[in-house]
């Protein structure tokens, strides 16, 4: 097995262009499991951990650009106040040891329908920056996933970063599993309020072949809130609205029966998680309409 260890992003892109079959490896927390258990025998590995710029983040034009190689622990510590939904999800990834190594870029590249980082990215309308020697593309995250463990990357492309706007309203994430640590999610749900454009964002995990948004549920709730003037003067939500939102989220799912759960349970649980997390974010919004999850500047 060849081992390629570029020390600059330019070299990494050149290496991927010359070795399109090379398996990129960052934290290694997915790739190494496959290698140790002989589920995969890569002809070559492209180690991205030697590229410092990949493990950094920056802010441009009101958006955060998170380098694909930023470990979860740093994402939580350094960006958790501005990306509360993503941070809640990140704190449920693997175990503390895994979070010290695992990266959002790796989560995307694995493209598992159960990837914990995906629902919050969907709820916030994030974009994935992918690059090759031919140039750079920005893909809406929902266009990035093309099937179970499949994504829209060409064979010479690498994920360079995720672009995501800091929260402008309350965000939540909910995950079902037998325990917090080291479980693959039975199902997950993320919700984000975007009061500046009077929209609600959602993201579902382990609910279909790819992570997905519940678009009908988003449309319904955004419409209800706007029609009743609740963005400006929020009141407790009607039970019927909460119930309808949960039903529409559950209806967006097309889950399967597998070793972790049944399709019926997943569908039911998604509705419950949708109602519950909506309650949490709406309470937060009612109490702090201008809350962005970070301290107000004096």
């Amino acid at each position: 097995m060849d081992f390629l260890r570029p020390t600059s992003w330019r070299d990494a892109l050149e290496a991927k262009a010359h070795h399109p079959d090379a398996t990129p490896i960052a934290g290694g927390t997915d790739v190494m499991v496959e290698i140790n258990f002989d589920h995969r025998r890569p002809t070559s590995l492209l180690d991205l951990t030697g590229i410092d710029e990949l493990a950094s983040w920056s802010e441009h034009g009101g958006k955060l650009r998170i380098g694909a190689g930023l470990p979860y622990t740093r994402l939580i510590d350094e960006l958790g106040d501005r990306l509360p939904g993503l941070a809640i999800a990140a704190r449920t990834v693997g175990s503390p040891q895994i979070r010290n190594r695992g990266t959002l870029g790796g989560n995307l590249a694995s493209a598992s329908p159960a990837g914990d980082g995906h629902p919050p990215l969907l709820a916030s309308g994030a974009e994935v920056e992918v690059e090759s020697v031919r140039g750079t593309r920005l893909l809406p995250v929902e266009e990035f996933f093309t099937g179970v463990k499949r994504h829209a990357l060409a064979s010479d492309e690498l994920i360079s970063a995720v672009h995501i706007a800091p929260a402008t309203g309350a965000q939540q994430f909910s995950k079902i599993g037998t325990r917090n640590a080291m479980v693959i999610a039975v199902c997950t749900f993320a919700i984000a309020l975007h009061p500046e454009r009077q929209r609600v964002g959602t993201g579902l995990g382990s609910a279909a072949p790819t992570p997905l948004r519940a678009i009908e549920a988003e449309e319904f709730l955004s419409g209800e809130l706007a029609d009743s003037g609740q963005w400006d003067s929020p009141r407790p939500l009607d039970d019927s609205v909460v119930r309808q939102f949960g039903d529409l989220v559950a209806r967006a799912a097309s889950p399967i029966d597998d070793v972790r759960s049944t399709a019926d349970y997943r569908t039911h649980a998604l509705g419950v998680m949708a109602r519950r997390t909506l309650g949490w974010v709406w309470d937060e919004y009612r109490n702090h309409p201008s809350s962005t999850g970070r301290p107000e500047c004096a």
Partner: peptide
């Protein structure tokens, strides 16, 4: 966890 780390890396 050293089982998920490659020695060469």
């Amino acid at each position: 966890t050293t089982c998920l780390a490659l020695a060469v890396a």
